[in-house]
Amino acid sequence: MLRVLITGMSGTGKSTVLTRLAALGHRVVDTDSDAWSRWTTDEHGRADWVWREEAITGLLTGHRGGSLFVAGCKSNQGRFYPLFEHVVLLSAPASVLLERIAERTTNDYGKDPAERALVLRHIAEVEPLLRRTATLEIDTTLPLDVVVHRLHLLR
């Protein structure tokens, strides 16, 4: 039994990697949906998209066999790190992320200039925090097959 969190900034390829891992037969969950996440207000009065703690706890504690890959980047994800065998940070240079965000057709986030500015702020402020707590970092400028293979081999 293996539970892996795949985290990283918008545009790093979390959803793309999940699709490939699912094709290899792994159980995958993208937490960017109302089923797994909800809007709340943080201590500064700003909107915050956080994990539904009961749902995530049930997912992780109820997983019984094989590999489970969970993707997301939420302010409350650190509470769940003890339930994962690995926390994998996907990363790429800011210019690559902004280019991917501009070109993707499956998600409108980051198309607005204010959202692009927020992505850059998150790279500067949030990514270093994720890097300090990750058990593995994978540069997603590598070919997709290489990234997926590294995740597929985790034990």
Rank of each mutant, 00 (worst) to 15 (best):
1 M>G: 10
2 L>W: 10
5 L>T: 05
8 G>K: 10
10 S>I: 01
10 S>G: 01
12 T>A: 11
13 G>S: 07
21 L>C: 04
23 A>I: 01
24 L>F: 06
26 H>Y: 05
33 S>Y: 12
36 W>N: 06
40 T>D: 13
40 T>H: 07
43 E>N: 08
46 R>Q: 15
46 R>H: 15
47 A>D: 14
50 V>I: 15
50 V>M: 09
52 R>C: 07
52 R>T: 00
54 E>L: 03
54 E>P: 01
54 E>W: 01
56 I>F: 12
57 T>C: 08
58 G>M: 04
59 L>A: 09
60 L>V: 04
61 T>G: 02
62 G>T: 07
64 R>P: 01
66 G>L: 12
66 G>I: 11
69 F>G: 03
72 G>S: 13
72 G>P: 13
72 G>E: 13
76 N>S: 05
79 R>Y: 06
80 F>A: 07
81 Y>V: 00
81 Y>E: 08
82 P>R: 04
83 L>W: 11
84 F>W: 04
88 V>Q: 10
89 L>D: 07
90 L>S: 09
91 S>A: 09
91 S>H: 12
91 S>R: 14
93 P>L: 11
95 S>R: 14
96 V>Q: 02
99 E>Q: 15
99 E>M: 11
100 R>D: 13
101 I>Q: 07
102 A>V: 01
103 E>P: 00
103 E>C: 04
104 R>C: 02
104 R>F: 10
104 R>W: 12
104 R>Y: 11
106 T>K: 02
107 N>G: 03
110 G>D: 05
111 K>Y: 09
111 K>W: 09
112 D>G: 06
112 D>W: 11
113 P>K: 10
114 A>V: 12
115 E>G: 08
116 R>M: 04
116 R>T: 06
116 R>A: 15
117 A>C: 07
117 A>S: 14
118 L>E: 15
121 R>A: 02
122 H>R: 10
123 I>R: 14
123 I>N: 11
124 A>M: 09
124 A>E: 15
124 A>C: 05
125 E>A: 03
126 V>M: 07
126 V>E: 05
126 V>T: 11
130 L>H: 13
131 R>C: 00
133 T>S: 13
134 A>L: 09
134 A>N: 05
139 D>N: 15
140 T>P: 03
140 T>I: 05
144 L>E: 13
146 V>T: 15
146 V>M: 01
147 V>H: 01
147 V>D: 02
148 V>G: 08
150 R>Y: 04
151 L>E: 03
152 H>K: 02
154 L>P: 06
155 R>H: 15
